[in-house]
Amino acid sequence: MLGAVCAIMLTFSNCQKDFYVYEIEDQTILPVNSQKIKPKSVPQYISILYTNFFQKAISPNSMLQAQQAIESIGDKQVAFDILLSKYMNDSRVILPSLESMQKDPEAFIRNTYRRFLVREPTEAELNWMLNYIKSRPNVTPEHFYFAFGTCNEHFHY
């Protein structure tokens, strides 16, 4: 009798299925640029800006003077705009060609995001930029580079 009970118990215990409950931990969804929370110092910003436009490092003396020039104007957006406008008038500045942008706008947008914002664009951003290129026949890589170089995200890390 005892043996029969044990056999039945063993049989049922062997047949019992294991139940696994898979849970997902709560995740906070943040925008892709959310890691950038600190402003760059003016020397950091100038250094990165210069490198992005000239593909070489700015000299220490030039950096010091650029820093002083920026400090002499209170509105830093205006000051950065003037500085970059000055760079844009320099024949040594390196920009993608209009043809390359028009030939493969998606690659241009992705590369521009990587260069200035060190990330990929979201689908929404990519679509907005592609539509912008399509709808503005006069827009050039220079306009994009200027906007990216002087946007708030580029000033933060």
Binding site: K36, I37, E153
Partner: peptide, 17 residues
């Protein structure tokens, strides 16, 4: 326009030049 779009995506965090 382009900068405004970029800033709009970033401005929600209150960080700006």
């Amino acid at each position: 326009e382009v900068r405004g779009f970029l800033n709009k995506n970033f401005a929600t965090q209150g960080l700006e030049i």
